[in-house]
Amino acid sequence: MHPSTNLGRRRLLGTAAAAATAAFFGTSGRVFAAMEDVDKAIADFGGGAEAADGTITLTTPEIAENGNSVPVAFSVESPMTEESHVESVMILAADNPSAGVATFHFTPRSGEAKASTRMRLARTQDVVAVAKMSDGSLHRASANVKVTIGGCGG
């Protein structure tokens, strides 16, 4: 890991929406998703099962260089056999205008239940990953990503 340049940024951060991504996601006054929406999405996804922490690892940067393109990766411990595998993984952004980011569907042929993509985050928020296994169990992980306002606002 390389030394990060986070110290100054941390002091400058508020929870205000990053100007650029706020423009992308709409003007102020729009209602943002919140933890209730996340809970509801997980309930719909998992059929009401309780999501246990662990088994799934979520990787996101601590500070997003730009909210328009934030790398997100996950990996779920699973033998990925016919008898025991990951069926789906759902990624949610708790404070975006709409919580859904993407839902990944796996089969035993996937070999490993891991994937990555790049997402848009409208502001500093928690990102949640939920894995649904073939036996119906749910596992979750979450991480907080700070989204910053850069430069002269340009």
Binding site: T5, G8, R9, T148, G151, C152
Partner: peptide, 8 residues
């Protein structure tokens, strides 16, 4: 090398 807001 310094930051302007959060930009390096």
């Amino acid at each position: 090398g310094k930051n302007i807001r959060a930009d390096h």
